[in-house]
């Protein structure tokens, strides 16, 4: 029951995020690259129902804000109480407010760009890198593991030593070394593909080892012997009777490893080695928060991190649920 509830919440969150991301141009309140320097590092805009006189309004509103400086030369934004700007449908987005108010749901960054809009656009890069990276590495690990497990002998030996090399290397250094070994002047799409490749190169070893182990034990099972007695050829046996038994594991490992790839992209981008401006990703949104003083006084620049965390969390819940659905007890229950 509890697992089912969490699973539902996770699916809802990820589904909503994916939809909002796919239709970011219709959902995001602002253009992600629109700079509003007069409202840099603006805190999230609060919505009001009661005005300064204590009067209730059915339609929520925001106050227009005015920038000022306090004693330490930090920007402050004060609400101009006379200027009520009611919520309304935006020109492109479902949400907007009357001019001159601004609806910064999660605040703005140091160049006055709306963080919420940027998170939605950045999700396109980050989510797709995560999914693509997980698929590429799992597919590659699956292929290597299946070959090693089924053929055994020197093929197994060779492939597994290579896999172990990649498992053994500390991922962080390998990531940096691989990125360092590749040219720094690439356009953003090339960098995107490069990151997918680098992340996959790090991740396939573990999958290969597990799949190899599964195939190794599966090929000794009686139904594989039966298929051999029937005169089935190797690829037929492999694809029809051995590999289908590993698909459940693959589904689990893909959903559990996507966050790792999102983290990897963020890590590279935060260090300036990944996705570069003007392209947007959750990682390079976080470059903003590398400075302590910014985080100290403008904590809303950390919101992209919250999205990374929530996405990872939801994917793990889904992975757990998938894993549980693979266990024999659940299968038995289904069949009773």
């Amino acid at each position: 029951m509890k697992r089912g509830f969490l699973f539902g919440v996770a699916i809802l969150f990820l589904g909503g995020l994916t939809l909002a991301t796919a239709f970011a141009d219709r959902v995001a309140p602002y253009d992600p690259n629109l700079e509003n320097r007069a409202q840099a590092l603006h805190p999230p805009t609060p919505l009001h129902f009661w005005d300064e006189k204590g009067e209730f309004h059915k339609r929520p509103f925001v106050y227009a804000t005015q920038m000022g400086y306090e004693a330490n030369m930090l920007r402050t934004y004060s609400q101009v109480l006379k200027k009520k700007c009611f919520l309304r449908r935006g020109r492109h987005a479902p949400l907007g407010v009357q001019a001159p108010g601004k609806l910064y749901i999660l605040g703005t960054d140091s160049r006055g760009r709306d963080i919420f809009s940027r998170i939605l656009y950045g999700a396109r890069t980050s989510l797709s890198i995560g999914i693509l990276g997980a698929f590429v590495s799992v597919a590659f690990g699956f292929l290597v593991g299946a070959l090693a497990g089924y053929f055994g002998g020197w093929i197994d030996h060779l492939l597994m030593r290579v896999a172990e090399f990649f498992i053994m290397m500390p991922a962080l250094y390998l990531l940096l070394a691989l990125r360092g070994a590749l040219p720094p002047t690439l356009d953003s799409f090339q960098v995107y593909l490069l990151i997918v490749l680098i992340l996959s190169a790090i991740g396939w070893g573990g999958v290969a080892r597990v799949i190899r182990g599964m195939v190794l034990s599966l090929r000794e099972r009686d139904f594989v012997l039966a298929a051999r007695v029937l005169g089935r050829r190797t690829p037929e046996i492999l694809f029809r009777h051995i590999l289908p038994h590993t698909y459940g594991y693959l589904a689990v490992i893909v959903s559990i490893s996507i966050p790792g790839y999102i983290f990897g992209e963020s890590f590279l981008s935060v260090l300036g080695l990944g996705i570069q401006e003007p392209a947007i990703s959750w990682g390079n949104l976080l470059t903003e928060s590398l400075s302590y003083s910014v985080v100290r006084f403008h904590p809303w620049v950390l919101f992209p991190g919250l999205f990374i965390f929530l996405t990872a969390f939801c994917l793990n819940i889904i992975g757990d649920a998938l894993k549980a659905s693979q266990s024999p007890e659940d299968k038995l229950k289904e069949n009773v």
Partner: peptide, 10 residues
């Protein structure tokens, strides 16, 4: 015809 029928079927 194998020994363990349950194991001989996928």
């Amino acid at each position: 015809v194998p020994q363990d029928p349950a194991a001989a079927l996928d």
